[in-house]
Design a binder for these strands. Structure first.
Lengths: 187, 187
DNA sequence: TTGACTAAACCGACCAGCCGGTACACTACC
DNA sequence: GGTAGTGTACCGGCTGGTCGGTTTAGTCAA
């Protein structure tokens, strides 16, 4: 699909943004990090906007690929939710591309213009359907998804929200919730 | 405490960041929005960093004040969690100051330098204790908190994660969870 | 000979921070 | 009670460095 160089550029951009902050995501830094020249970068991405949109798209693709992979092996109720949860946890996956580093793309894109989140926004209708049809209480499914978002955001921002033990307990509880819970109150 | 002008500057900065994106948070725009000159702004905040830190601090203060207010009237288990949840929902509160608009401060600060989140990070140990001691399962308390984070992040980014009905259902379920749930499985 | 670059000079807009002011209230001394 | 001095709040033009983007001239492999 996309060339190897393009992929290297996207990953380099994510590394720069992660290491130095999204404000410091300069095209020259990206070029250097990717091991190419500034001209070479412009050859692939004509503007910074184009690069940011490509980063957001890559984030979406990696997330959905991961969910598809998980769902292939998991046929129980709540599989989509567990897939999403799993996608948000990827620290680094050479095969799929690094997700947690790409999630900084959302921040970088939103920082300069929220309209650049279009590739993400365009999938929300689908994601919401998937959550509503995941086989468990929709509200619970949405909560798991929101908590997963909370996890990666806090990670990106380096806010010490959870320690290692708490994170494990939270993850286990989220997985448990994703299988549905027959004993819940009915209100 | 802090002068009226300082407060006006903080709110103006939040409005600018919300309306035009955190990358467009320029000191001159803030000054104009606050109805003062650039020189006047520099009189109160010597650097942009100082302004950003003040914004983060204001965010933390508003959040904790809100939680304290809620807890004064709510003595049941999970009160702190409900307070946090409530704080994250404030769209605009002239008495307390606007929270949802200030939450953009987190994005703005993190965009230029994650170290500016110090006022927030410094409260995390306390917040984690509050969650662990809230009277309900710590993991569930953490999840509610993370979901609340997920809510405001998606709001700031204008990602259409939930429609109005879903949001209400999610909120109701989060509140229900915050009272603890005796019927949960034990793993 | 085309596609994928390198290398490096350059431009123009933009913006944080600087600085030399102004205005005004308040104190203090004679 | 006048005048000098002091501190606070604020004004707004200026500048120096930065950065997206352009341009040009050339390399190299398939």
């Amino acid at each position: 699909m996309t060339s190897d160089t393009k992929r290297r550029i996207l990953e380099a951009a994510a590394r720069v943004a992660t290491a130095k902050g999204v404000q410091a995501l300069k095209l020259e830094s990206v070029a250097i990090e990717a091991g190419i020249s500034k001209g070479g970068l412009f050859y692939h991405y004509k503007t910074k906007e184009e690069l940011l949109i490509a980063m957001v798209q890559a984030f979406v693709d990696v997330t959905e690929n991961r969910i598809a992979t998980i769902m292939a092996d998991d046929l129980e109720v709540g599989a989509w939710v567990r897939g999403f949860l799993d996608a948000c946890q990827i620290e680094e996956d050479p095969e799929v591309g690094s997700f947690s580093r790409l999630s900084v793309a959302i921040m970088a894109a939103a920082a300069s213009d929220k309209a650049l989140l279009k590739p993400l926004n365009d999938r929300q209708t689908h994601w919401r359907s998937a959550l509503n049809d995941s086989g468990i209480d929709p509200a619970v499914a949405q909560i798991i998804r929101l908590a997963a978002d909370g996890l990666w955001i806090n990670d990106i921002l380096d806010v010490p929200t959870l320690n290692e033990d708490e994170r494990k307990a939270v993850y286990a509880e989220l997985v448990r919730m994703s299988y549905g819970n027959q004993n819940r109150g009915e209100r």
